[in-house]
Amino acid sequence: MGLCYTVGGKPVLSALKYFFYRLLTLAITLIGLVTLIFILIRSIPGDPARVLAGMMASEEDVNLIREQLGLNQPIYIQYFIYLKNLFTLNLGISFRTDSPVINEIFARLPNTLLLAVTSTCTAVIFGIPLGVIAASKKGGKLDFLLSTFSIAGISLPIYWLGLILILIFSVELRILPAGGSGTPMHLILPTLTIALYLMAFIVKITKASVIDSMEKNYVITAKSKGLSERTILYKHVLKNALIPVVTIIGLQFGALLGGAVITETIFAWPGLGRLIVDSINSRDYPMVQGSIFIFALLYALVNLATDILYTFIDPRVRLK
C-alpha cells in the first residue's frame, strides 16, 4: 500500500489526494467568498465605480476605478477580470496611498503574524497547565477560581481589556508604552490583550477534555495495572485529552484575527487589522477588499495546517 490516510484503521484517501482535495475545496470556498463580495458591492444601488470610490471621491478617481475594474464591460467580463486579478494577487491600487494594495498588505502582514504567534504561545503556555490543574482538582477551590477566571476572560470585551491594560501599565505605572511598535516592550500589552481571551478559552476546553478522558475505560485498565493516579494523568490522559484541544486552538485562529483587528487599533500596531479599519474609515475599497481576501486566505491556510498537524498527533488518523 502506498501513502494512505487511515481512519480507525481503514484507508480513506491517499495523503496526496487528500491534500489536493483540501486545497481544491479551499480555493472553491475562497472563490465563493470573493464572488459574494463582488455581488454585494454591485448590488448597492448607484454607479459601482462611484460606490467603490466613495462619496467624497473626485471624478478623476471614479474614472480611474471604472478603468481599473473594466466597469464599462459586460458584468461577466467584469467578474472574470476581478477573479483573475485576485488570484494573481493583483489587488488594485489604494486610493489613499496610490501604491499597490498588495505591497501595503505584505508590509503589514508580518506584524499581524508576530502578534498572532506571541499571543497564541502565551495563551497555550499558561492555558493548558491551568486547565489540567482545574480538571485534576475538579470541584475544589482552585477549580472554582480557574473556572471563574475562564468565563470572565471569555466574556471580557477585548477592546475594554486593552484600554484597562493601558490605564494600568501606561497611565498609572508608566512602565509600558501605550501604543506603537518597534521594541519588544511594545509587543507586551497587545500580546496580553489577545492572549487573555484565548487563554481563558483554552483553560475551559482543556479542563473539559481532560475530565472527559479521565472517564474512559483505558483509565480503569491503567489503574488495574497498578499505575498511580498521577502517572495515569500524565502518561495516559493528557495525550488523549490534548488532541481535541490542538484542533480547537487552530479553529480559534479566527477569533484571534478578529481580536487582532481591535487590538491593533487600540495599540496603533501597524498590522493588517489596523489597515482594514483605517481603510474602511477612509473608504479605500480596494484596500478593504484586498485585506479581507488576505484574511480569508490566512484563515483557510491555518485551518488546513491544523488538519495536517492533527494527522501527525493522532495515531488513529495517520500516514501509512
Binding site: G32, L33, L36, A255, G258, I292, F295, Y299
Partner: peptide
C-alpha cells in the same frame, strides 16, 4: 462554508 471562510467578527466588519 463560504460564510465561514471569514471569522465571524471579520464577516460582520465586511
Amino acid at each position: 462554508e463560504i460564510l465561514l471562510a471569514l471569522p465571524g467578527f471579520l464577516l460582520a466588519i465586511m
